Structures are given as C-alpha cells and as structure tokens.
Computed example of a mutant assay.
Amino acid sequence: MTTDVTIVVATRNRRDQLLDLLPRHTAPVIVVDNGSDDGTPAAVTAAFPGIRVVELGRNAGAGAARNVGVALAETPFVAFADDDSYWAPGSLERAGELLRRHPRTALLTGQVLVGRQERLDPVSAGMAQAPIGTAPDAPGPTVLGFLACAVVLRRAAYRQVGGFAERLGTYGEEALLAMDLAAAGWNLAYTPELVAHHLPTPSGRDPGARRRVEARNRLLTAALRRPAGVVRAVAAQAWRDPDGRAGLRDAARQAGWVLRHRRRLPADVEAALTALSRVEPAPAAPVPAGAGAPG
C-alpha cells in the first residue's frame, strides 16, 4: 500500500457498491458522505474501522466533498475515486513516482476502463491523441480536462487554486479546476499507465436533471473564464434542448457570483482550449441510465 497518496471517495446513497469496492483501494482512504440516507456512513465504519468517514449531513455536491477530503489528507498527493470506481494495483505508486519526478506537474489523469468488459472510455482515447502537445517537463500529453474518478493531484497545487468551485456541485465541475491549474502555470498530463476502473450501475437518478446541471455548469464555467464569444456559443448550444434551457435559467441566477469571480485565462491557456474545441469530440461511453458521479 502506498503511503504518500490518499484516496478521497465522495459518495451518496451507494452503500452496497461502495462497500464492495473499498477493499480494492491500495492507499489510505477518506470517505466523504454527501448526506446519504441509506446508512452508508455507519456501514462503512462498521465494515472498515480503519477508514476515516466524514459526514457532511447534506448533499453539498461532489466538488465540495472532495475539497473536504483534500483538506483532511496529510499526504503530498491525493487521488480521487467515485463510489463506483477504483484504481488498478500499482497505479497510485507509479503516480507518486511521476509527480515526484516532475515537480511542475499538478495533475495526472489516467486511462479509464469501463465496466466488467474494461472498455476504454472514449474520453481517454481522445486524451491520448495529444492535440495540444506535451510540455517538455511533463510525463505525458497535455490535457485541459479530466474525469474526476481518474486523477491524482499534487495537494499543494490543488489548494493553491482553491480546489473545486463548490457552487458547481456535481457534473462538469472538473473543467474550471483544470483551467485554474493551467492558468497558475501547472502542467496537467494524461498518463495511460495509470488505470482507473469505472463500474457504473443504474442509480435511479434523473438524467434530465443531470443534463440541466451540466448545461448550467458549462455556461458558468465559460462565463467565469472564457471570452464572450465562447459564452454565447455555449449558451446557444444549450438552448437547443429543454433541459439545457432550464440550465441556462439556473445559470442566470448566478450572474452576481460570476461577475465577482470572473477572470480571463492567460493567452496560452485560452489558445490551447480553442485548439481543443476544434477537435471533434469522441462519442460518450455508454453507461446505464442514472449512473454517474456521486452527489
């Protein structure tokens, strides 16, 4: 078991799957519970007395839960896992080695294998193409986004930029953090030798509600960091879908917060994001209805 990485697991109402996967983790674990009402905290404590369990008492969102876990971690590096994911043996030890060897790298994102069939997630396949190249002092192709269940971060860099924006809650919260790390001068790299297994299952959550939140968060993220033209394009895309329109209305209610926290990205980061936007996105990986991030 590695001792310089802490795994932070955000969870909500997935007790049985969490209990099934916790034995597969190969580093100390902090479980942060987002107001579960299915007995998750007590069950984890009873089954795994060595695991620290933090009860938020409400659904604060995955980003907020991860922020709490990172604040409590005492190791230099932190890995995230969802309650339906785990890291392959050896991945976290290797991640620690790479982060020590590459001190300007804040974040490593590994490849994601989905389901029992271990299908490569299309997001991982897209990252491997390296459309914006590889920094000279980075261990892999540069990325400006990630899947939260497949990253290992330098804790100091995460805290430097403030972690996840808790207003974004769950779904799409990763994009703003990636932008802020890059804007602070850190490298973010895709390293396929690190492997995260994702085992999504139906959860009964409302897919329309998820699309609404995703639309809201895409617009808020763009409005916080991107040029006006990008914000208009994001809004226009969301307007085509009823759930997207609802998300736009939700975002409009956050206008005051956006104006207080808006700051443009450095020119090189904006140019890289523009280059990425010209690459045709890979199709989404098929997942069961209602599956997704905790929260």
Rank of each mutant, 00 (worst) to 15 (best):
V143I: 13
L153D: 02
L144C: 13
G162Q: 12
L147S: 13
A150H: 01
I132D: 10
G133R: 06
P141H: 01
P139Y: 02
G162F: 04
Q129N: 10
V123G: 10
P136M: 08
A128T: 05
V152I: 04
V123M: 14
A148V: 11
S124W: 01
P141A: 15
A130S: 13
D137M: 08
G163N: 08
A128D: 13
T134K: 11
R159Y: 00
R154F: 05
V152W: 02
A157W: 01
L120V: 12
D137I: 05
G145I: 00
P136S: 09
L147A: 13
L144F: 14
A125V: 10
A157Y: 00
V151R: 00
V123K: 05
P122D: 13
M127L: 14
V161L: 11
A135C: 09
A148L: 06
A138H: 02
R154L: 08
V161W: 03
A130C: 12
A130H: 11
P139F: 04
A156Y: 00
P131F: 02
V161A: 13
A128E: 12
L120A: 12
F146L: 05
T134P: 05
V151W: 01
G133F: 04
V161Y: 08
P122A: 05
D137Y: 09
A128V: 08
I132S: 12
C149M: 10
T142G: 09
Q160P: 10
A135T: 04
G145E: 06
V161H: 10
L147V: 11
A138W: 01
T142D: 09
C149R: 08
A157N: 07
Q129T: 15
D121A: 15
A125E: 15
I132N: 06
A125I: 06
A135Y: 00
V123E: 13
S124E: 02
I132R: 08
G140Y: 00
C149D: 09
S124K: 03
Y158R: 01
Y158C: 01
A130W: 00
P139W: 01
V161R: 07
A148S: 15
T142F: 01
Q129D: 14
P122T: 12
P131R: 00
D121F: 02
P131V: 06
P139G: 07
G126Y: 03
P139Q: 03
G162I: 11
V143E: 06
G126A: 15
G162M: 10
S124N: 10
V123Q: 13
P122V: 04
A157P: 11
D121W: 01
R155E: 04
G126R: 12
C149K: 07
L144Y: 14
G145P: 03
M127A: 12
V123S: 13
T142P: 03
L144P: 07
A130F: 09
A148E: 06
Q160Y: 00
R155Q: 06
R154D: 15
F146H: 08
V143Y: 01
P122S: 11
F146Q: 03
V161E: 09
D137H: 11
P136T: 07
L147I: 10
G126K: 05
P136E: 06
D137F: 07
Q129V: 11
V123W: 10
